[in-house]
Design a protein around this nucleic acid. Structure first.
Length: 121
DNA sequence: CGGCTGACGAAAA
DNA sequence: CTTTTCGCCAGCC
């Protein structure tokens, strides 16, 4: 069973959870702007960790302090609308902020895209 | 302890 | 051009 049991190999739990970094960036997203999971992931250093970003936010939306509706996938698709109170909440919120959404896809995506590495730099 | 899953994304075939 | 596969890393069964 316990062939190798590192009692304390990494007890140091980095308070800077992957999530917290994500939360910070998402909170910094200006109103009327949107970003992609990959952009945040890249900003965190994990260019291919886009899944983790979205997943981390999955826990964030329960906090209700994160404008998760401003985060969409790389195609501008509202991939997370199904996690909101209603499938239309995400879209309605975005439109409320001035973002045009049609067929669950952000219009004028290239112009609405907010890159943390550039805007935040 | 081991393996599956997951708001994605990009490269390979 | 489209479809498939791998990579990311952490939580959960």
């Amino acid at each position: 069973m316990s062939v190798k049991k590192p009692e304390k190999i990494q007890d140091q739990k980095p308070k800077n959870d992957f999530f917290e970094d994500v939360y910070q960036v998402v909170r910094l997203i200006p109103k009327g702007r949107v970003t992609s999971y990959g952009a945040i992931a890249a900003y965190l250093g994990s260019k291919r960790g886009a899944r983790m970003v979205g997943w981390a936010m999955g826990s964030s939306y329960t906090h209700h302090d994160i404008p998760a509706h401003r985060v969409v996938n790389r195609d501008g698709l509202l991939s997370a609308r199904h996690l909101f109170e209603t499938p239309t909440t995400m879209q309605e919120r975005l439109e409320h902020e001035g973002v045009v959404v049609k067929d669950d896809v952000v219009q004028d995506w290239a112009n609405r895209f907010w890159d943390p590495e550039k805007e935040l730099l």
